[in-house]
Amino acid sequence: MADYTLEEKDSFTVLGIGTELESDYTDFAGITKEKADFWLAIKQDGRLDTLQAIATNDYIFAVNEAVNNKMMYYAGVMTDESIQEESRVIQFPKGEYLVVKGEATTADEMSNKLTGIAFGQVLPEAKNFAYVGGPNTTVEMGQRNGLVFGEMWIPVVRK
């Protein structure tokens, strides 16, 4: 089984700028392209810089959340401030989280790799915990040795 930990986390919030993912949830290639296009757009138009300017740390969050039966995807940061752009305050509950750590050459690659490990390996094989919904996120934490490193955080409950 993939390398993972279960960690207790306090509740936290992420301020995110988002987009609705139109691809079917089983269309991995379509979702991956939509996410990559979204990141390119918010980097080019300055919205990511706007978020990072008010962040309380250097972490960049890529959040998946179901909202009103829509698959939403957000770029976000931890902050107590707000921005002019349309945004959403995403609440993560206090509790246990599945944490998968990893690194890759780009943030997109890291996010896709960790998502694949978490949802493709760890959760299907887990016997004593389960994901029951709610927002989940990959967290870009920095760079070292030319690679982007970070973690995926998924709220889970004990079975």
Rank of each mutant, 00 (worst) to 15 (best):
S11V: 11
F129H: 08
R144E: 10
I60C: 08
A29C: 11
R88S: 07
M72I: 00
V148L: 03
E7K: 12
E86S: 10
K101Y: 09
S87R: 05
I90K: 03
K113P: 11
F28L: 15
S87W: 09
N64C: 10
E109C: 10
I42Q: 07
S82Q: 14
G30W: 06
Y74H: 04
T137Y: 07
I31H: 03
V148C: 02
E103D: 02
V89G: 00
D45Q: 07
F12R: 02
N68F: 01
T137N: 04
V63G: 00
V67Y: 09
I17E: 02
Y131Q: 04
F61T: 07
V77M: 06
M71G: 01
T106P: 10
A126F: 02
Q121A: 03
F38L: 13
D27P: 01
T105G: 08
F28I: 15
P93E: 01
V148S: 01
I117S: 00
G134T: 02
R88D: 05
K43E: 15
V132P: 00
T79C: 07
G120K: 03
Y73G: 00
F119W: 03
I60K: 12
Q52N: 15
E140W: 08
G133D: 01
W39K: 13
Y74Q: 01
D108P: 15
W39Q: 12
L48S: 01
A2I: 05
F129T: 11
T13N: 12
V14G: 07
K70I: 00
R47L: 04
E7Q: 14
E22D: 15
D24P: 00
T115M: 10
V148H: 03
V99N: 07
R144W: 04
A118C: 08
P93I: 06
D108E: 13
F38H: 11
V148I: 12
I154Y: 09
Y25E: 14
L147K: 13
N128G: 06
Q121D: 11
P93D: 02
M141A: 08
L6I: 15
A36C: 13
T137C: 14
L114A: 04
A36M: 14
F149W: 05
I31S: 04
I31P: 04
Y74P: 01
L48V: 03
V89C: 01
I31W: 05
A36E: 13
E151Y: 12
E20R: 14
Q84N: 05
T5H: 05
E151W: 10
W39V: 15
F92P: 07
Q84V: 09
V89F: 01
G76D: 01
V67C: 05
L51V: 15
E109I: 09
E22P: 11
K70P: 03
E140T: 14
F119I: 07
M1T: 06
T5E: 13
A107Q: 13
D24A: 11
M141L: 13
A2E: 08
D45L: 08
Q143P: 00
N69V: 00
